Simulated assay, not measured.
Amino acid sequence: MPERILQWKEEYSIGEEEIDSQHKRLFEIAAGAFSIVSPSERAAKVKETIRRLVEYTRFHFDEEERFMKEELYPHLDTHKELHEEIIISMNAFMRRIPEMKIQELEKELAFSIQSWFIDHITQKDKQIQAWLQKKRRFEGLLEWNEEYALKYEPLDSAYKAILPETKEMILAREETPKQLLARLEQNLIQHYRDEEAYLQSKKILTPEHLLAHKKIIDILQNLIKKMRFNDQNMLERDLALFFQGYLTRHKHSLLMNQESLSISL
């Protein structure tokens, strides 16, 4: 039974090489508890294996938490609490070793390894994988595409800045979708004011361009009105579509004045 439990399976992988490598190492260390030794050495062998497991598990949890923080994983605090519970359980198990008979020891160790590592990986770490996959799909939708470029650096730089700012706002999840959209609306309004002042200074701001800005703000305001409270999935989808349409429409509006822009810039 222990041999089957401690066999690494690809279904345990979360798709992150460093994390998966550390998970495999945990399995390798745990397998040492079931290596063949004399009965008199069995308890000492298990205790030494648990000690090594605790030491490496602490290292792994620190690395995994650092990874989650870098990726802005929204459930980091909850996940850290689970890590702390596992360490407490491992230390408690090690203290009980002298009181257990060898058959009981092996049975409980196999059960504990299932709980500490396999259940945690398949139930909790897999949630990190699912979130990362969703995050990366979304990030791809809000990446700058050169087809949006106007070839006018002051304006292109401003547009490029909006996308990463929006991604960071969404992935941080510190606000409800409605709050986030309202803040985005204010940012976009300020951006348009700056752009209009810039175009006005070049004497190429047209009524059509002002109307294009108004229509885009109207679309965003409609998104805010329709947004269901805390509907993160709808927010991500609609924002991606909004930005794709916004950048395409805005580019078309500016290219209508391409000759004037070329002369002025």
Rank of each mutant, 00 (worst) to 15 (best):
I29V: 11
I5E: 08
F27A: 10
N187C: 10
L241W: 01
K124S: 15
H23C: 04
R58W: 03
L26T: 04
H250M: 12
M234K: 04
Q200H: 15
S35Y: 08
A31S: 14
I14L: 14
D218V: 05
L141H: 08
K202E: 12
Y12A: 11
L241S: 05
G15R: 08
R25C: 02
L211E: 15
F117N: 00
F27Q: 07
S38A: 15
P154G: 11
I121R: 04
H83G: 10
F67C: 01
R42A: 05
F59H: 13
E165S: 13
S253G: 13
K107A: 10
S35T: 12
R4P: 03
S35V: 09
A149V: 01
L265S: 07
A212N: 12
L150S: 01
A92E: 15
K215P: 00
K178Q: 13
I36T: 11
Q258A: 09
R66Q: 09
K214W: 08
L181N: 01
L6D: 01
E165G: 14
E65N: 05
R42H: 10
D20M: 04
K101M: 08
A149M: 01
I121G: 02
N230K: 14
Q133S: 07
E146H: 06
E81T: 10
S157Q: 14
F67R: 00
D20R: 01
E104P: 04
L184T: 01
W8E: 02
E174H: 14
R137V: 09
Q7H: 11
V46D: 03
T176D: 03
L150F: 06
I97A: 09
R173N: 02
E70Q: 07
K151P: 00
E65M: 02
H75S: 10
L171T: 02
S264T: 08
E208G: 14
L163G: 13
A161V: 09
K225G: 04
M227Q: 15
T166E: 03
E55P: 08
I36Q: 12
Q221I: 09
P39D: 05
K178C: 04
W8P: 03
L53I: 10
F93Q: 10
I128C: 04
T78C: 09
I170T: 05
V54W: 08
V54S: 13
R193Q: 09
R228Q: 13
A130L: 13
A31L: 09
